[in-house]
């Protein structure tokens, strides 16, 4: 078997074990949430009878271990159950939310990743001079401002003052692609600003590290143009750490954008999860946790694989 295939298979197997471990943690975690599902669903004004009726209906009186295996068995067959609170099919409701999240994250990534890498390359090219300092200062500033504040700032100027973009980013079926893109313009902008700094700094640092190498000096002595050296000789050898950071930020864009979703009223996974945590809708919280864990583990496997493929020494082991 080709060593790369073997490596990928190993990684995936390891990922599945991790996922199983995560499922135990998620299940255990949801069991120790304070409060009571029935009380949370019915609210302050619930009577004892109504609470008891709801608890019985939800099967909250079964033992924990049997509930775990029933849940895991269902999840393996793609049956995530129905939401306790409104009776909607979880897989169905979640796939729409996940689609929205991926749409937003996808566009944010599509803009931020190339931008971060190009800015990183420029920063290395003009290392220590004003373009480098400007890029670093701006990206560090945007990454340091809390994302809800960034959201409010762009909302105030671009939505309320100039009215260029809508402040409410609700997307739904039947919108044209153009309308959708217009709707998500502001959250994408904020997300790009939030993740740009980290990726840019990492690209810059990784390439600068390589720039110390002897072969880069050789290339310089050959008289190659600085950008050619960076792009053709330095960058390919700096890919592994950059990919790691890019993947980390991708994962963040999918699972960690709940604040931006709330500020811009975007119907993604984060808001869906938070609503259901507040209502103690355990099956939904578990399903979301599982999907998030899978996405995180998946991105990490992908980062590892790309790092291997990008590295000739690992690609052709002796």
């Amino acid at each position: 078997m080709h060593p790369i295939l073997k490596f990928v298979a190993q990684r995936i197997a390891l990922g599945l074990v991790l996922l199983l471990a995560a499922s135990v943690l998620i299940f255990a975690g949801t069991q120790i949430l304070p409060g009571d599902v029935a009380q949370s669903i019915l609210g302050q004004s619930a009577t004892e009878t109504a609470l008891a009726n709801l608890r019985a209906e939800l099967g909250l009186n079964e033992p924990v271990v049997s509930r775990y295996f029933a849940w895991l068995g269902g999840a393996l067959q793609g049956d995530l159950g129905t939401a306790l609170t409104n009776g909607q099919d979880i897989a169905d409701a979640m796939s729409r939310r996940l689609g929205n999240t991926l749409f937003l994250a996808g566009w944010a990534a599509l803009i931020s990743v190339p931008l971060a890498i190009i800015l990183g390359l420029i920063a290395v090219r003009y290392n220590g001079r004003w373009p480098d300092r400007l890029i670093s200062a701006v990206t560090l500033a945007t990454v340091s401002v809390p994302e809800f504040l960034l959201g409010y700032i762009v909302m105030f100027y671009l939505a309320v003052q100039f009215r260029w973009f809508p402040s409410v980013s609700t997307v739904y079926d039947g919108m044209t692609l153009g309308a959708k893109l217009n709707a998500i313009a502001l959250p994408v902008m904020v997300l790009v600003m939030v993740v740009l700094g980290h990726m840019m700094r990492m690209t810059r640092a990784a390439i600068l590290n390589v720039m110390q190498s002897a072969y880069v000096e050789t290339a310089e002595l050959k008289g190659l143009r600085p950008f050619t050296i960076i792009w053709k000789h330095a960058f390919p050898n700096a890919i592994a750490p950059v990919v790691n950071v890019v993947m980390l930020n991708m994962a963040y864009l999918v699972v960690g954008v709940v604040v931006v979703e709330v500020v811009f009223v975007y119907p993604g996974m984060g808001q869906y999860l938070v609503d259901h945590v507040a209502k103690r809708d355990v099956p939904v919280v578990q399903a979301c946790g599982l999907v998030f864990a899978a996405i995180y583990i998946g991105f990490n496997i992908l980062a590892d694989v790309i790092a291997i493929v990008a590295n000739p020494r690992l690609r052709h082991p002796r």
Partner: peptide
């Protein structure tokens, strides 16, 4: 009806004429 639970987002939506 658009659900806007965030206070600032809600007032912005009104001020920007979206609702």
């Amino acid at each position: 009806i658009t659900v806007i639970n965030d206070n600032t987002a809600r007032t912005s939506a009104l001020q920007s004429g979206q609702v």
